[in-house]
């Protein structure tokens, strides 16, 4: 093949890249995600996980809390972020329940209370039936007002959340006896998808508590980089995106494993989701490389064209 032929073949390939309809990219993404889901769904195999320091910190913070401690869990997300945050919520509630902590669920997002209900049903009702609502855990539902709710909680927790999801007065719930302000909770766990969320909890509650509250958070991928500066100072631990969820899930599963009995599938959700993640990330890398190949080829063509034009213009 002569030089001209090679150039034509190359131009053809570059031409395809330049003209590529974005719907082919969409299709590639769909396959990259759906393929691993079907494979993992059929085989049940998941990829191994090694926990990073931020995920280990979350695990150890909950583990070293004395059994029976009161933990405030704020579910600040909605179904739109459920794909990332639901697995975290499951594992966080599971570890807390297994450690025997008293759990108080709240939500600053309208649909957060529903997500808390789902987590309670999935973990506590199903696997920890000995825990009694009101005595061992309670869901106080949603309150509007964002940071202003946090402000009220700083001085009067019951006023901020006057009733439980079941319609009982908060002050009469045994699990909350002795709680007057948010600083009476030694630990705060937030599962956060945006505003208001982990950042606001750090700004309005943790910073004003004078170190009384230990806070850990599980957050979306979008929020993770923004929250890293707070770790490990104002945040004791951080679960970033589905990867953080998978790492933490593997830690909790390893700790709560019962002999050789397999882990129930509902506690492998995050690790299962790392399969499509792998496919999609590799596709992204390939797309960026292909995009740059097209870019540099264009650049070289332009330079060559410009050079030729310049040569023709010269006398």
């Amino acid at each position: 093949m002569d030089g001209r032929g090679r150039r034509q073949v190359k131009r053809g390939f570059i031409g395809i890249l330049e003209r590529l309809d974005r719907r082919w990219i969409f299709l590639a993404m769909a396959i990259a995600v759906a393929g691993p889901i079907i494979y993992i769904g059929i085989t049940g195999k998941t990829l191994p996980e090694t926990a990073t320091p931020a995920a280990r910190a979350v695990f150890h913070a909950i583990e070293k809390l004395p059994a029976g401690s009161r933990v405030l869990l704020s579910f600040d997300f909605d179904p739109a972020s459920g794909g990332e945050l639901t697995p975290m919520a499951t594992s966080l509630v599971r570890q807390c329940a297994a450690r025997g902590h008293k759990l108080v669920f709240i939500a600053l997002w309208p649909l957060g209370a529903q997500m808390a209900d789902d987590a309670i049903r999935r973990v506590i009702t199903a696997d920890y039936p000995a825990l009694v609502e009101g005595r061992d855990y309670v869901n106080l539902g949603y309150q509007a007002g964002n940071e202003a709710v946090m402000k009220v909680m700083l001085t009067d927790f019951v006023k901020a959340f006057p009733k439980t999801r079941e319609g009982m007065a908060t002050g009469a719930v045994p699990v909350l006896s002795g709680v007057t302000r948010v600083a009476d909770f030694p630990m705060l766990i937030t599962i956060s998808a945006g505003y208001p969320g982990a950042k606001e909890w750090v700004q309005y509650v943790v910073s004003s508590s004078g170190g009384k509250i230990t806070m850990v958070t599980g957050c979306t991928g979008v929020q993770t980089p923004q929250l890293y500066p707070y770790y490990p100072g104002q945040l004791a631990g951080l679960l970033g995106a589905i990867k953080g969820a998978a790492e933490y899930e593997s830690l909790v599963n390893a700790t709560l494993a019962k002999g050789d009995a397999p882990t129930p599938p509902k506690y492998l959700e995050a690790q299962r989701r790392m399969g499509p993640q792998l496919g999609a990330h590799i596709l992204m890398v390939i797309l960026i490389i292909l995009g740059n190949i097209a870019f540099f080829a264009q650049k070289r063509e332009r330079a060559a064209g410009g050079g030729a034009a310049g040569a023709e213009a010269r006398p």
Binding site: R22, I25, P79, A80, G82, G83, L287, I288, G291, N292
Partner: peptide
């Protein structure tokens, strides 16, 4: 509420892939 809101957000995975192909230039 759940299927519509979560799928709307999921849609962004496709657009971010397309944007990466077209706009990420060294």
């Amino acid at each position: 509420l759940v299927p519509i809101t979560s799928t709307m957000f999921a849609l962004l995975a496709f657009f971010v892939a397309s944007a990466a192909f077209r706009a990420f230039r060294a």
